[in-house]
Computed example of a mutant assay.
Amino acid sequence: MLKRGGTIGILGAGQLGRMMAMSAAQLGYRCIAYAPEGDNVAGQASDDLFANKWDDTAALAAFAAQCDVVTWEFENVPVATAGAMPEERIFPHPRALETAQDRLNEKRFVEGLGGRPAAYARVDSRADLEAAVDRLGAPGILKTRRDGYDGKGQWRIGSDREAQGLHLPEMPLIYEGFVEFEAEFSVILVRGRDGEIRFWDSTRNTHEDGILATSSLPAGEPIEAQVGEARELARQVADALKYVGVLTLEFFATREGPIFNEMAPRVHNSGHWTIEGAVTSQFENHIRAVAGLPLGDTATVARAVSMTNIIGKDIERAQQHLKAPDTHLHDYGKAKVREGRKMGHVTRLER
């Protein structure tokens, strides 16, 4: 158990790290963030910030020497960087990054546990793509196997002709068949060092231009009917990885049951509602888990909850949301405003 006044290192310095650091401070811990140049908004709530490259071995060693435990705030931290931390002091284990960073490996891993991802095919060439479209049909989605998020690194293919005319990037790809779904939802859990697992309620998630727009409770049908099966898969994933911290799995609710979409080994945008809407937020429980503390209650505290992302220039009008009752604004403090960038979120509760 990490003692009061201990130091938690966070690899990455975006808004997720910022909210982690705020929860850590509440529990009596110091935080140090590590990330290359950028807004590095986690530094606003941290005691120190290492603005160094991911492969700067001297800086990583200095960072690790100051930390009692280390975690990360996004899934694209290089595995080698996480692996440079002392194995007994980094949570979750870097194997979670290694599994989640490659979409092909991730789907195979989940299939091995009995999960059902969308039909997929490995694509390393134009011939592979044409064969994949022929076998799985169109429409479908061509994705980079690594580094894609918020709709980046994805191309919708509507027909054989579109596949033939697409300029392929020179990187490993994966083609996924189109899933006819009724709703999208996420399963967010926290697993402690002792293996205890707790789940938050699953929200109904809606996306716009590949970016999460809203997460809301109650999720309604058919999500509520499929959460149990999805949770069981998420539990198996967490146990197989010997995971410590908050883990997220995204699903499509379909007529055939839940279809696995992707995994995020971290706190998640669709769980931001838990700050005001749950007894213990995803951020506090992540800190509790990596620090070896008892996990907090994950129960929802309101009759209905909605979380809405604030994107780009909408942040300039964000304070207007506060006119509504039981509404909570989170401005991430990012200096650079640009289209498609998550600048904050607002949560509304109905008691």
Results as ranks from 00 to 15, higher is better:
296 G>V: 01
345 H>R: 14
178 F>G: 03
64 A>Q: 01
277 G>W: 02
227 V>E: 13
114 G>M: 09
77 V>Y: 00
16 L>P: 01
329 L>W: 15
323 K>C: 00
295 L>I: 08
56 D>F: 02
315 I>L: 11
70 V>S: 08
5 G>C: 10
125 S>R: 12
316 E>M: 05
311 I>W: 12
130 E>G: 02
98 E>R: 07
76 N>P: 08
225 A>R: 15
84 A>G: 14
242 K>V: 04
22 M>R: 11
256 E>R: 15
92 P>N: 07
204 R>P: 10
209 D>E: 15
315 I>T: 01
34 Y>R: 03
339 E>H: 12
6 G>Y: 04
235 R>I: 09
237 V>L: 04
293 L>W: 15
87 E>T: 06
158 G>L: 06
10 I>F: 02
276 E>K: 15
21 A>G: 08
94 P>Q: 05
154 Q>K: 10
276 E>N: 13
47 D>T: 03
328 H>R: 10
110 V>P: 01
112 G>K: 09
336 K>V: 14
43 G>S: 07
23 S>Q: 13
311 I>E: 05
161 R>W: 08
28 G>P: 06
68 D>Y: 08
57 T>M: 10
313 K>C: 05
306 S>V: 12
246 V>K: 01
174 I>Y: 14
331 D>F: 00
225 A>Y: 14
132 A>W: 14
43 G>M: 04
123 V>G: 10
234 A>H: 09
327 T>W: 13
168 L>P: 13
118 A>N: 12
297 D>V: 03
60 L>G: 03
16 L>M: 14
311 I>K: 09
296 G>Q: 12
96 A>N: 03
235 R>F: 00
11 L>T: 06
95 R>S: 09
286 H>V: 02
150 D>F: 06
32 I>T: 03
22 M>Y: 00
61 A>P: 00
240 A>T: 15
166 L>P: 04
275 I>P: 01
35 A>D: 10
347 T>I: 03
268 H>I: 01
65 A>W: 05
261 N>Y: 14
294 P>R: 09
101 Q>D: 09
148 G>F: 06
256 E>C: 07
115 G>I: 11
106 E>R: 04
211 I>N: 11
65 A>T: 00
344 G>C: 05
175 Y>L: 04
89 R>H: 10
226 Q>W: 06
190 V>S: 01
87 E>A: 10
217 L>I: 06
311 I>F: 13
257 G>F: 00
285 N>W: 14
236 Q>K: 15
